[in-house]
Amino acid sequence: MFPGKYQAVHAAALTVVLLALAASGVQAFIFSDPGSLYTAAIPDSWIYQAYHSTDQLAVFYGEGDWDLLYFEGLGKVADQSVRELAERSLALYGEPGGLSGFQLETPLLPVEVGGLQGLACAYTYQDERGNLLWEYRIFLLLPDGEGFSIALGSNGPWVKNNPPVLEEVLKKWQWTD
């Protein structure tokens, strides 16, 4: 009897701990980029890909076979506004030599990332094998004139509906002074 009673108490305690963890939100780790530009909370299930990342590019793989999250610092751009950067980029994606079958799925809408106003949209395109890929992309223009982008890619439209991963990332995003 004693061991069984002990097990029940133990299980109850564990449930409380798990519920507390669930209530606190998604488990995440803090990622500080090598370029010392930002820190972001990345859900534990997204794995940093050191092999594909550089000082300017941070790449994470999610659980799904197509799930991809990446942040990219572009360096100086000539664009005078974030809208100019976004529209120029989307125009190039849609041109010959850009993305095959490119189609804008949502218009550019305002989004805030760490107190900085950006623009976001979702689009689809086809990879070399004809698979339809979705991507949600945020364009940002930093105060010193450098472009920045956050992108979430997968093979389904879920990426455009403010998924938990992006909510978590954006909620705790901080620009380094």
Partner: peptide, 17 residues
């Protein structure tokens, strides 16, 4: 060579790991 006025890259992940 650094591209002047760059645009964000579009990356793809390979489905077969």
């Amino acid at each position: 060579v650094t591209v002047q006025n760059p645009v964000p890259q579009v990356l793809q992940r390979q489905r077969i790991l």
